[in-house]
């Protein structure tokens, strides 16, 4: 089981900030494919990966990052701090 978090417009599009996800995926890209297959709102949120960033256990990661031993995955748009 993974905690999957969403921020900013990704959170708004999916309609929740966080959920527990049972997954068979071995990497982030696989997790995204599983989520997209669920419902249209997920497919919409993940339709353009170039507009998304991912953090794995609170560190920025790539979409091919493995999920073995991972507890938390977060999806969000490019950051706008400062």
């Amino acid at each position: 089981m993974l905690d999957v978090l969403y921020f900013a417009w990704v959170r708004e599009r999916i309609g929740m900030p966080k959920e527990r996800v049972e997954t068979q995926a071995t990497d982030v890209a696989g997790l995204i494919e599983e989520l997209k297959a669920r419902e249209a709102r997920y497919a919409l949120a993940f339709s353009d990966l170039s507009a998304l960033r991912v953090a794995v256990d609170q560190d920025l990661a790539d979409f091919d990052a493995p999920l073995a031993g991972v507890r938390e995955v977060a999806f969000f748009p490019p950051m706008t701090g400062g």
Binding site: A8, L60, M79, T80, G81, G82
Partner: peptide
């Protein structure tokens, strides 16, 4: 610090 905080610290402005 400013360059990295802008693009690598997890904040989103609305």
């Amino acid at each position: 610090l400013m360059d990295y905080l802008k693009s690598r610290a997890p904040f989103w402005k609305k």
